[in-house]
């Protein structure tokens, strides 16, 4: 009998990464609401850390703006703060500190300072948390000069992305963790859902992954996505392949801002068709920018966008399911595009 290793979840991968990086580097500090043990944070990403590093894990009052501001100050003074915003919906409260402070300091002060700050926050719906605890607001921070926006996914290795984000000094990072991703297993190359795919990852600290069906001669569509929505896109792509013999390439972004388009453009040059999938609202979303850049770079391609309806996210499951983009919607749009 073969011993199968216990699969790590994305949550465990992120939690391990925090532990490792705090172990290695005593400049790393953690700030956030309710992050102390035994509670260990609303989603448990910080569990165990306050016990291990009591001097460097700081539980804060409910003051999102001040704790991001204080973290800006820690970063300017040479430390590496990681601040947890309990729900991504609350980043609106920190917008001034991100846009007018953290993201501006380095350029505005003529490259004389660095702000090695990481703001981690769980975004996303599908848990029935209703209008103010379910949103994907990262699109509001795309296009902010000086800010990097990173979103882990279930491909190896979400923890590595977080470690890299914390160790770098180049610019502040908004690190967007979809809530449903936490319980997802970290996928293994060549196994399970990935066994049909050939995967190419771009170089650089926050890579873009391109998934192609190994058996497919030609793919007819490129699906671009990030974060948890890669789960939906992957399942939709597998169904399209098995049920309809339609093969898609999936391009999974780890970095949402700045936009690095080369791997996606390469895929679109093969397929001539682009479908973007995201959980933020449709209008002026991540997909709008991706589609615009693709259309500028590669003439006469087909484009569609799957995103949330332009509505608040309802509490009731029957409404929430209709408001957020689904696996079925991805399949429907894909079929429509290739037929």
């Amino acid at each position: 009998m073969k011993n199968t290793p216990i699969m790590l979840t994305v949550l465990e991968s992120l939690n391990n990464a925090l532990l490792q990086v705090m172990e290695k580097d005593d400049r790393v500090y953690l700030l956030g609401e309710d992050i102390l043990d035994p509670y260990g944070g609303a989603f448990k990403v910080t569990r165990g850390l306050s016990t291990r590093f009591p001097e460097r894990v700081l539980s804060t009052p409910i003051s999102e703006s001040a704790i991001v501001g204080i973290s800006n100050g820690l970063a300017l003074a040479g430390l590496h703060p990681v601040v947890e915003i309990m729900f991504g919906d609350f980043v609106t409260l920190t917008a001034d500190q991100i846009i007018n402070h953290a993201a501006k300091f380095r350029w505005m002060y003529n490259d004389q300072v660095r702000v090695p700050l990481v703001i981690r926050t769980p975004m996303g719906g599908r848990r029935g948390y209703g209008p103010t605890h379910s949103q994907s607001l990262e699109k509001l921070f795309l296009g902010v000069p000086g800010l990097r926006v990173v979103a882990p996914n279930s491909l190896p290795d979400p923890g590595k992305l977080l470690e890299t984000a914390i160790s770098q000094e180049e610019r502040p990072i908004l690190f967007v963790e979809h809530k449903l991703l936490y319980t997802c297993p970290v996928l293994e190359y060549g196994l399970g859902d990935l066994q049909d795919f050939e995967i190419v990852s771009s170089a650089g600290p926050f890579p873009t992954h391109t998934l192609k069906f190994s058996s497919a001669e030609k793919s007819k569509l490129t699906i671009a996505t990030y974060g948890y929505n890669f789960e939906l896109a992957r399942k939709a792509a597998l169904e399209l392949a098995y049920e309809d013999e339609i093969f898609c390439e999936i391009v999974v972004f780890s970095q949402l801002n700045p936009f690095e388009m080369d791997p996606l453009f390469e895929s679109i040059r093969r397929t001539r068709a682009l479908l973007t999938v995201e959980e933020g609202t449709f209008t002026l979303g991540w997909g709008a920018e991706v589609v615009a850049r693709a259309a500028e770079a590669i003439p006469s391609i087909k484009v569609r966008r799957a995103a949330a309806l332009d509505l608040p996210i309802a509490n009731s499951k029957s409404l929430e399911e209709k408001i957020l983009p689904s696996q079925e919607l991805i399949k429907e749009l894909a079929l429509d595009m290739v037929n």
Partner: peptide
């Protein structure tokens, strides 16, 4: 107002 938490963070670092 935005400078106040930033200054506080630098004080915390010190």
């Amino acid at each position: 107002g935005g400078i106040v938490p930033v200054a506080s963070g630098m004080a915390l670092a010190k």
